[in-house]
Amino acid sequence: MAKKEKVYIYKLYERFWHWTQAFLIFFLALTGFEVHGSFTFFGFENAVDLHNKAAWAFIILTIFTIFWHFTTGEWKQYLPTTENLKAQAQYYIFGIFRNAPHPTRKTILSKLNPLQRLVYLSLKILVFPVMIASGLAYMFYRYPSQGEILELGIGSLETIALLHTIGAYILIAFVIVHLYLITTGHTLTSNLKAMITGWEELETEEGETPVSQTIKDPVGEKIRENTPQITPDRYENKEEI
């Protein structure tokens, strides 16, 4: 029988990164599509200025986060796996409508289901690098030689701009689907609450040591020590949707 336990799953930096990144992507899209000419909100000049500033913030955040991923070993969370990949896809297409259980169990060691792993990994190694590289090229491609950076010798802005625009459309599509899929946790808001507070109710198997206690996480340990124990509710009794 599955038991439920409150687990500290998203650490402070992780949440800071996630929400800063979320804000920056929203803000970059807003200013970026104004630069694209889709609408007028800030005014073109301000939009460009804000977009560039937000871009630098995004780059700095990314550098910090890469550091965090490697020092904490969290990068392993994004290793792709084929295990359960099909089951996860089938769950979203069929299972979810039949009240079937999530095929992938969320633990601290494995927070992401196989589909998430695949999507987030492609963001990390494909979409973000392309957006950052094309964005930097967009900024610097024709700096005059007397500027700080020598001319990169790119003849036209067109390729850069189109690449950057395609990436932007993909990111918006991602955000739309992502915002929807976070409602597919145990409850409509359980994923959202977890990303805000760091705490989430996760299932543990009967007799199994709760994963949370096996993790070497001194900070989390301390927080748990200072947190009063909550009696886990039974899954079946909860209003699901």
Binding site: H36, F44, V48, L157, T165, I166
Partner: peptide, 16 residues
Amino acid sequence: AYIPGKTTNAAVDSLG
């Protein structure tokens, strides 16, 4: 010239 805010690529924008 690609002029941001002026130039658009019909294919990219409609697909996007």
